[in-house]
Nucleic acid binder design. Structure first.
Lengths: 213, 213, 213, 213
DNA sequence: TATGAATGAGAGTTCATTCAT
DNA sequence: AATGAATGAACTCTCATTCAT
């Protein structure tokens, strides 16, 4: 009873934190495209607003606490899409090597399906420094993903599916190799991304495989 | 003695490109450090000038034709250092797998020795788009390096030292994996870069190795 | 509602060119005064902003696509005023010599009425070279005016109202003579511009008149 | 005796005021060309130095007290050349109308002969305001010339060679008409300047001629 | 919710001029 | 007499953000 007369304003603000308004989603979508196309450095509010069909940058500032906030949402959105796309494909396999290959291949299949999402993610993450508060949060999000992946590799090692190696380094090697394809795809539109995926999968399959005796 | 009545536009700075005054070198060095520390996006002339102990940004414009020119020099300097460092180490080996391992390990040893150079290189190259004329020149320089490396891998394949794989993709996978370590090293000062080098070398040795029969 | 996903470059300022916000008009007015007072070379955004009571030069950049855009608007505004002032006065006459005299006299009457407009016009046009794209457009506008005027002179010749002469040269002679008065008026505030107008009218009346036989 | 041990430095400075060093002449020549080609606004020391084959702008500052000083010398040089070219041609005539015609035609013949001099003069004079001390001096120089020319016209009037008119206005009308041709010639390289001269001469002959009775 | 004008800081660049050599 | 590095101010322009409506 007592709490029920909290102002509408407050409610709206709170709910917005969780429920993305349509405008927010639209702006995030525009941001992803602009970042992918012109790079983080030139992805100004002005450009994003124009791309989204908005008449002013004030609109963006109104819906987001600041540039950090928008970028966090961009990263979150891409991770959400990536998770939804990759997880079922990976989990369709039960063997460790199969999951590893699928991780790589579905990651690059995602690049084919959503050509702007991963480039935007790479742009943002590689241009963000631990400068402002809210930033580290979603840098951590990807580090968390890497840690989870490393843990899976270690499970595979314990299960005898993989040889001994530094899982941390292996994960980052995969990360780097995949991101490089993402970058190349932007510069070379004719690049056969799917073929790159198969090659990378082969590379890391061999890199993790137990040596034949 | 005769006045150069034509071609006013092309500047006398051309010859200066080769003379390399001490100031230019100092500014390039400051630029490398600033870029490595705060990233390409925040590496403004003001910051670089301050870091170099210069009183104004005009000083940089005086010595360089523009930001492009400075960045080109940054890239050239890093490539020069990298070449001088890595080439003799690689050429100390005569076998293909040894050269491959050494390529990776000396690359990361370079990162230990000159902790700012490679981060600066990665920052610049990943933030440059084919925008302003003279840029593509040194984007092409690194592509050339990749092409050369790929050719070496193909030689190894023809010599029977490596299995069959797409040399292009392999090179970029290495590139990406190494650059990822470069990026990590900036964020995690305690990272054992040398160990990462050994691991990566192992990874790509196995990835390229002929399958035991 | 649909976002304009293409043509990011072309700005929304296009429509603003016609809407003519009050601010734009105010800035143009300030620009005209500043240019007339200190000359094109010293008419910086800073000076214009100060004159217009604006807090920053960014304000001008906000309302105009660039210095070119502002200058184009300055020229357009002056031409608009000149047209509105001179045309009815000229068309009040039906004879060719009368129109010629009125062209000159109303042009200088305009200088008396709006003492900054013509000086600003002359400053801008004489300091613009075919440099930056959109400029040539309104340089052409004045050339068009000269061409129209020359055509009228030729009509007069065909109608037997004028002697034979090179209409092109005559028009430019008038142009130059009038602009010279505009320049003098700026340097000599006590100059009797109206009297100058009468004298110029007499000069060009005699210069175009058929020789008495 | 007492005065004879004034320092060499002082002497050199004094003599330089009157005796133009070769360097000064070279710089003035370069300045004239640059101003004519790119306009006063873009005729920076840097551009002039480059055009003159000098390695730095310091050279110009060394030889001239400042930009004003250089510009004054530019004006003086052009006036010197103009005087030497036009005076004998004008004085070859003894009748007032002939001198008037020749004044105009030789002025434009000068433009054909020295295509950069008059454009430079017009550029400088129309972009100089009564700002800094030494400037008004040579603005006055041309005003003096106009005054002299006006006086000649009045002589002609007293001698019955010309009709009654405001000599001041007439002189400036000629000035303006001629300068307009100078300006046009820069924009329209194919313009027949000599023909323009003949037309202008005719125009002002008729404008000053006594009405046939 | 939404708008778009306003702000002020900071960007790269050019400028005329100074000064030690 | 000449050099060219250095200076500091000014330039146009872009940026993220704020605010009154």
């Amino acid at each position: 009873m007592q709490a029920s007369h909290s102002s509408d304003k407050q409610d709206a603000a709170v709910s917005r934190t969780f429920t993305e308004s349509a405008r927010r989603a639209q702006i995030v979508a525009a941001a992803i495209e602009v970042i992918a196309e012109v790079g983080y450095g030139k992805a100004s509010f002005a450009r994003i607003a124009r791309h989204a069909g908005l008449s002013s940058t004030g609109m963006i500032s109104y819906h987001f606490a600041g540039k950090d906030d928008l970028m966090r949402e961009v990263v979150a959105e891409v991770l959400r899409v990536a998770e939804a796309y990759m997880r079922p494909r990976i989990e369709a396999h039960s063997d460790f090597p199969g999951r590893l290959r699928t991780h790589i291949e579905s990651n690059l299949a995602l690049l084919v399906e959503y050509p702007k999402h991963l480039p935007a993610l790479v742009e943002v993450l590689s241009n963000i420094r631990g400068e402002s508060a809210g930033m580290s949060e979603f840098v951590g999000a990807t580090e968390e993903m890497n840690r989870v992946l490393a843990e899976r590799l270690r499970e595979g090692q314990r299960a005898g599916a993989f040889r001994e190696f530094d899982a941390e380094v292996m994960v980052h090697a995969m990360r780097g190799a995949i991101d490089e394809v993402v970058g190349r795809a932007a510069r070379e539109p004719d690049l056969d991304v799917t073929a790159c995926g198969r090659e990378l999968a082969e590379i890391f399959d061999r890199a993790t495989r137990k040596t034949a005796m």
